[in-house]
């Protein structure tokens, strides 16, 4: 009986320490030190919330760079992958459809694999650098850019590549949402 009482009290004390004090102090520290990150790295445009730097968005318009396919349509409620296995016929059919669509819109060129395979979160904000370069011509054409502007767009895509962290950790990548925002701002006047 004495053991039971101590157990019950200890649970309450541990709850107070690790379940209330710890997250609340961390909340205060996070909001003081890293308010932008702690609140979701949100991006506002004209005071309107348009998304987060970290969360991928769906782009289907020809004038935008496209992200990877998503198992949840980039809705985030809830997040998730397709969980299709390596011998899944469903996945095989999805790949065929996506590949065909990309080849059709990119002058018959084969797409990089990451553009036809869905991510684990369904919210992957990145594509590989190759996948970004692959789309430059198509985006330029849809925006009616001349060859000088096409070079500018190519340079923009190259500048958007985030390298390995510390020179070797992670993978080189391009943030699709950020690239599309800078593409819009670079060509907004001329494309209208």
């Amino acid at each position: 009986m004495k053991t039971l009482i101590i157990a019950a009290k200890l649970i309450l004390v541990m709850t107070a320490i690790t379940g209330v004090m710890y997250p609340m102090i961390m909340l205060g520290a996070a909001q003081t030190l890293f308010p932008h990150q702690a609140n979701g790295s949100l991006i506002y445009f004209d005071g309107r919330l348009i998304g987060s730097e970290l969360i991928g968005q769906e782009f289907t318009d020809l004038k935008y760079f496209w992200p990877r396919p998503s198992g949840v349509g980039y809705t985030s409620q809830p997040s998730g992958g397709t969980n299709l296995g390596p011998t899944s016929k469903v996945l095989s059919e999805q790949i065929a459809t996506r590949r065909a669509r990309l080849i059709e819109t990119h002058d018959g060129e084969q797409p990089p694999d990451n553009l036809i395979l869905a991510s684990g979160s369904g919210l992957d904000p990145h594509i590989s650098p190759a996948a970004a370069f692959y789309q430059v011509d198509r985006v330029a054409k849809a925006r009616g850019l001349d060859s000088g502007q096409l070079d500018l767009l190519q340079q923009l895509a190259e500048r958007s590549v985030e390298p390995y962290n510390f020179g070797f950790i992670g993978q080189p990548r391009v943030n699709v949402l950020k690239l599309n925002i800078s593409t819009d701002s670079l060509f907004s006047k001329r494309s209208k």
């Binding site: 990877r68 395979l117 869905a118 684990g120 992670g170």
Partner: peptide
Amino acid sequence: LGVAHLEGKETR
């Protein structure tokens, strides 16, 4: 499937 094993993986 004729692709690399990238399904379910994050680019970063």
